[in-house]
Amino acid sequence: MATVAPGPDTNEAPTLIGLTAALHFVSLTTYGARMYTRSRPVLRLGWDDYFITAAVICDMVEWTLLMTSTGYGLGRHNFYLAPGSAMQAEKFLFISQPPFAWALAFTKISIACMLLRIQRSQGWMIFLYLMMVLQVLTAVTINTFQFSLCDPVAAIWDPSIPGAKCKPPIVGQISIYVTAAVTILTDVIFSLLPLTFIVRIQRAMREKIALSCIMGLGLIASFGSIFKTTLVKHYGVTGDTLRDGVGLSIWSVMEVQLA
């Protein structure tokens, strides 16, 4: 933690809350409209609907925990926070991360399930099932690493625990870069896959438009992932983790909403 005041005691939490709330309003409205049309006049939900519902649940858990962290000081300079408040902010910021990995994984599995309904060739199905497995393995790997950063885990937000052992920051950065590479790669793949068949498939125009929108949003999400990755090397360098966490949190939420 910095021993010299890093600047005035300002708070970037309102920006985080405002932007992420707006993104959630749009995504939840779209999700609600999707589920309504799939339920009327008869219920015709598919696996893609179930997985996107799981993604929404994980995302809301992650966002709720993130918003709780702002109540304790996320968005302010660590320097101005009481140790107890800073500890709680770090705690809720950390525990918001595991469900984020699953929100992203379930979103992409939902897209794969949707593509399976459109194309049923053997090679296509094998490829998409492998992509689903990759999403699960990526989420499991991210969670495993997150909970192995410190022994005990509580030392992540409370470094004063006697005998605690934590991995060097560079290890965490390398892990983030590797998982980000996988995330960006799958974003691009899912965005470009429809190009292989969208022109020739015999589907309603609204389905083709929906696929085109998914392609565009997927590419935007991949750019968001790239930008978020560039922020990692600056995170916590000066000990101002709760201030630095705002940018990463905004781009992480955007990544899930656009994926």
Rank of each mutant, 00 (worst) to 15 (best):
M1P: 14
A2M: 14
T3Q: 12
T3H: 15
V4A: 11
V4G: 00
G7D: 06
G7K: 05
T10Q: 13
T10Y: 02
A13R: 07
I17Q: 10
T20Q: 10
A21E: 07
A21S: 15
F25R: 01
V26F: 14
L28C: 12
Y31A: 07
G32P: 09
Y36P: 09
T37V: 12
R40V: 13
R44K: 13
D49M: 01
F51V: 05
V56Y: 00
V61M: 12
M67G: 02
T68G: 03
G71K: 10
G73K: 06
G75P: 05
G75K: 04
N78E: 09
A82P: 08
A82W: 04
P83C: 01
A86C: 05
A86M: 11
A86L: 08
Q88E: 15
F92W: 15
L93I: 01
S96T: 03
Q97S: 13
P99Y: 02
W102S: 01
L104K: 08
I111G: 03
M114R: 08
Q119S: 14
R120F: 06
S121W: 03
S121K: 12
Q122I: 09
M125L: 09
Q135E: 15
L137P: 06
L137Q: 07
L137N: 00
A139E: 04
T141N: 12
T141L: 13
T144Y: 06
S148K: 04
C150S: 02
D151L: 12
A154R: 11
W157R: 07
S160M: 11
K165P: 00
P168S: 02
I174C: 06
I174Q: 12
S175G: 04
Y177T: 05
Y177N: 10
T179V: 13
T179P: 02
A181P: 09
A181F: 13
V182F: 10
T186L: 06
V188A: 04
S191E: 07
F197H: 09
E207H: 07
I209P: 05
I209D: 09
A210W: 08
L211G: 04
S212W: 09
C213Q: 09
G218W: 05
G218K: 10
S222A: 15
G224E: 00
F227I: 15
K228Q: 15
T229A: 12
V232E: 06
K233C: 02
V237F: 14
D240W: 05
D240K: 07
D244S: 08
G245W: 03
L248Y: 13
S249Q: 01
I250E: 01
E255M: 06
